[in-house]
């Protein structure tokens, strides 16, 4: 129904708010070098506003001041903005495809390099390591797992998870085609589970920012899941370019279940080889 109504008093406020958010992200970039300017806005804004609520910061202008002058405060916001949510064997069908379709294609490659970009606290990297063990390829592989969040990387290196995390993973491990006993891969201690050294030894965790750092050599497989949903299309294209440069022809690119290269300008440089998974192969 079309009615006639006065101008919306909220619309100016909304416009100003989005200008102030942009300025805030600009300030973070100029001061600390972390570039969130091309992240998907709605999610970033929710986090900033939630932080302001929590800390009783009344306006975005106050928030900017606090961020510029209080490094510790910035670091807590950085944790909030980086969203380290992850789990072992999230989307079991992906790991099944990795086991049954991707890795067999690399049998015979003398040295396989796998890059896990945006590895958060490490669960994904260790899930991949399990699959490598079970396909007999572990010793021929090096897994480079990277993230820009140093606290998350620290946890990843330690490889200590709650018993609860591990219990939940066991079911997904089975769905991912896991035939062994998941308990073989960790040592239980009190309420924790420590990932076994045999899984850790070929996994290297390191600091890398997908927005501001360049590539670090040729990879056979790149796994980057549930990171690109947080980026806008411009930034996604930058990352696809980075991945494209890092893969030889025939190299594999694995994205999250709800991510796609389809809308990007790089779409036609990859074949979508497993329709039900977001697994692509460079032409």
């Amino acid at each position: 129904m079309i009615q006639s109504v006065p101008d919306d008093p909220h619309s100016e406020q909304k416009q100003n708010e989005s200008i102030e958010i942009q300025l805030l992200l600009e300030a973070i970039y100029l001061k600390y070098g972390y570039d969130f300017r091309n992240y998907a806005c709605a999610s970033i804004k929710r986090r900033i506003v939630r932080k302001m609520d929590l800390e009783n910061i009344p306006t975005l202008a106050d928030m900017q001041h606090r961020l510029l002058y209080d490094l510790d405060f910035f670091e807590t916001l950085l944790m909030d903005l980086s969203i380290n949510v992850t789990e072992m064997f999230r989307d079991p069908s992906f790991y099944k495809a990795l086991r049954e379709k991707v890795l067999p294609a690399l049998q015979g490659t003398p040295f396989i390099k796998i890059w896990i970009a945006g590895c958060a606290t490490g669960e994904e990297a260790y899930s991949v390591a399990v699959i490598l063990q079970e396909t007999g390829l572990y010793d021929a592989c090096r897994v480079y797992a990277t993230d820009f969040n140093e606290k998350a990387l620290q946890q990843a290196k330690e490889g200590i998870y709650t018993a609860e995390t591990i219990r939940q993973s066991t079911h997904n491990y089975k769905l991912a085609g896991g035939a062994a006993s998941f308990t073989d891969y960790y040592t239980a201690r009190y309420d924790n589970a420590i990932i076994d050294q045999s899984l850790k030894k070929n996994v290297v965790f390191s600091d890398h920012n997908l927005v501001t750092d360049s590539d670090f050599g040729e990879m056979n497989i790149i796994i980057c899941r549930n990171v690109l949903i947080y980026f806008n299309r411009t930034l996604q294209d930058r990352v696809f370019q980075l991945f494209h440069t890092s893969l030889p022809p025939g190299g594999f690119l694995c994205l999250g279940s709800k991510e796609s290269i389809g809308l990007s300008e790089y779409a036609d440089r990859f074949d979508h080889i497993i329709p039900r998974e977001k697994i692509y192969r460079k032409k």
Binding site: A40, C41, R46, V85, I229, K258
Partner: peptide, 18 residues
């Protein structure tokens, strides 16, 4: 298992936030 958000440009966005 995904949050659904709407962006200002009226596109949809997904996230795996807690």
């Amino acid at each position: 298992d995904y949050h659904l958000l709407i962006e200002n440009d009226r596109t949809l966005a997904l996230s795996i936030d807690a």
